[in-house]
Design a binder for these strands. Sequence first.
DNA 1: CTTAGAAGTAACTAAAATGGTTACAACGGT
DNA 2: ACCGTTGTAACCATTTTAGTTACTTCTAAG
Lengths: 138, 138
Amino acid sequence: MKQISTRFSIAVHTLSLIAVSPNDCTGDFIAGSVNTNPVVIRRIMGMLKKAGLVDVRPGVGGASLLKDPSQITLLDIYRAVNVTEENQLFRIHENPNIRCPVGRNIEQVLQAELRDAQSAMEQRLAQTTLADLIGRFT
Amino acid sequence: MKQISTRFSIAVHTLSLIAVSPNDCTGDFIAGSVNTNPVVIRRIMGMLKKAGLVDVRPGVGGASLLKDPSQITLLDIYRAVNVTEENQLFRIHENPNIRCPVGRNIEQVLQAELRDAQSAMEQRLAQTTLADLIGRFT
DNA sequence: CTTAGAAGTAACTAAAATGGTTACAACGGT
DNA sequence: ACCGTTGTAACCATTTTAGTTACTTCTAAG
């Protein structure tokens, strides 16, 4: 089955690190904690930057949060790294046979259901903030 | 972003067809309504069969539901076609640095949140039955 | 018993997404 | 000016899909 990219969990990890140790958070340092290649971190940092969650300084290095951890939800992070795809968790097969009653209506009927299901997941993500997570890294 | 396979929507389409026209539901007929290759349908039918949702008869052909449409939820179908993967919608990066407080705890903390989010989506899918959908194919 | 039609399945392919990697340009304090 | 860092481009191996061809197996009808 298809799974949601580790970009999401890496982004949460990255933001947690920045929140916990505001100093020394270079891409290489974060990559060391995540245990991956620094370029992977830079790519994700670029998405977080574009989403307005972090400020990254070229040259000198180091990142800082642009919002308080209590104001950043998992949904914010999820949306930041799931680029380019607007809103579609589920795919629906295309071009069903419109001469068939089922084929003619399946897309519209299913889309409403799947949108609701996706929304249920996202609303759950919106309930947890970065601050909530940090509190559990005892 | 990764999306959930069209296997799911095709499976819903397939079961709807079987429920609406219990006769003549051969793989080729279903493939004609879905507008894909018959082998794709046979593969999905095999999964639905293994999940105990349909009975398919080799030789003569034709499929029939093993449960009433009001007893088949979208979650049942979702689970039937998302084979082999047990329960993981989200992936979490592996082998974080355990010498880092964040790296040491991120997996456990995140896993609880993501499980809840996935569960929220699945519970929404469980609220809709095949009978609900069929009623909308006017 | 034979045959036609259908399911079951293996094997191959193209396309897309992912995550890792190397390489290099651009930037900015010290 | 230098050094460490960010920002990207380019490339690659792996995985997942979904479509396709081809072949075997099965069952009912003739």
